[in-house]
Nucleic acid binder design. Sequence first.
RNA 1: GCACCUGUAGCUCAGCUGGAUAGAGCGCUGCCUUGCGGAGGCAGAGGUCGUAGGUUCGAAUCCUGCCAGGUGUACCA
Length: 557
Amino acid sequence: MEEKISQEIKSLFDIDVPVQLTRPEPEFGDYATNIALQLAGRLQKNPREIADSIAERLRASGEYSDVSVAGPGFINFRVSKSVLQSELESMSVPDYGRSHAFDDKVVITEYSDPNPFKVLHAGHFYTSVIGDAISNLIEWAGGDVHRVNFGGDVGLHVGKTIWAVTQQLGGEYPEKLADVPEDERSEWLAARYVEGTRAYEENEQAKADIIVLNKKIYQIHTDNDHESALAQIYWTGREWSYDYFNAFYKRIGTSFEKYYPESETAPIGLATVLEQKEKGVYEDSEGAVIFKGEPYGLHTRVFVNKEGLPTYEAKDVGLSIKKWEEYHFDESVIITGNDITEYMKVVLKSIEQFQPELAKRTLHMTHGNVKLAGGVKMSSRIGNFLRAVDVLNIAADENEKIQGNRDDAPVLGAIKYAFLKNRIGPDVIFDPHESVGLQGNSGPYLQYAHARAVSILAKLSGDYLNAQTDEFDAGERSLLVKMTEFGDVIEAATKQLAPHLVCTYLYELAQTFNRFYEASRIVDDPREAIRGRLVGAYAGILKSGLNLLGIQAPDHM
RNA sequence: GCACCUGUAGCUCAGCUGGAUAGAGCGCUGCCUUGCGGAGGCAGAGGUCGUAGGUUCGAAUCCUGCCAGGUGUACCA
């Protein structure tokens, strides 16, 4: 449609201009364009005159009904019923709304990034949900998506934790770890991390010991040591963290193709940084190896510290190279919290110096922090922050109050939707009560909307799947028109990596449906068949949309 | 200090590649209800779009200054 209008303009005014259609308020029409307003300046003409002559052409084409010019020069029009009928036909396929924007593209998405030996906090939950939704969108657009995860199994935080572990055990006694109950392991390690961090800051001797221990842990990897007492403590602890992460991911429905531990990327990063130092990309400074960001408007960061150990920066260089070599991706999307925005710019700028193509294809997208809405008290033995599991428990508590159950389908639907309905970037205020709420813009509301539609379909007797009609009535038409927006919304959400657009749309769609449903009987109505077909398409779109967000759409609730 | 992000209704947020009376949910007022899942529908109150300028026929949207909050800023991740 946009191209056809563009052609009409070409033949009228001999100007090549792209036309963008928008979806105006339903009272104006199905589609609108402000192209006449844009052309007014260039043509030195009154925008209403331009709009009138374009509208004249559109009317003559016979493909639209109700072509009108309104306001300062908007052209509004409605599509003909044959167009609507064929749109309804196309909704019969299960992948209605799918685009091909990422056909033949290899895309690697990296998100979640929890560190072994540390707690899995709410931010990891949030970033996992975002990463899943974005991966799903790209995949649905034809992309060959590889979801990967990255985490620090070596580094100072590990030194701190292991130090506190040996203090707790009274020495390097790996066999004593068996005394920690299985369901408390993760929390037990997280508590050790807190102790280790405090000791590092407050106790000079402990700090020195931790620095030595940190080096030893790198050495465990270099030597592939599984025998020494320290190594056994280390590997056991790492396994505990991995088990915990995997159980959590399984519960929330996330799965990764690969987990890159920093112990794997560190040697590659270190070697690369040292090699590129010879070529002048990185340089020595005060015993460390740095990249000077100031020439690029960034700041300087340390890639190898004076202990000779690679910092997070070098490990990220190693990760980037490893991903590049293993996948040769067309696009790499890295999703993290926004606290490392500037940091990542420096890392990518340094990589750009010797692997420009890799840097060019890498997109770092960031989100804010998860905060609890006011009034909800958090208690955690190991610190004043929100753990991933706390989010799950609080939402389950609220769901129990309202729906009388703690089922994962509604609870996860509630949390994921609450995380995704806002634009990615600013902090998200998580309100557990509102998230599980059955009214308003919530996950369970949409799940309910889907279940209700399915329940209506179950009551239909005739063959509604291929129903036809000569004319849609007003309610049917508004629902159908709203449904035709789905593909456009998915396309925009994919292009902009903005899942919240899907949320907004699904909610508006449900509202449109409720208006239709309020006024139109379906079962045992003369128009049962055609309305049933519309309800079927509606249920299908809700399900597709929710699934893209990583949310289940159960048939019953 | 510098850099980046954010500031829209009481609260939580859409809208931001400039365009039609600035939208939604929650909360608040009123109405609808013998009904296919009412977990709904209709109507209403509520807004100097942080602020001062600028660009434009037109600015919540673009530019600049300022104010407020957040984050980052050399050996943590």
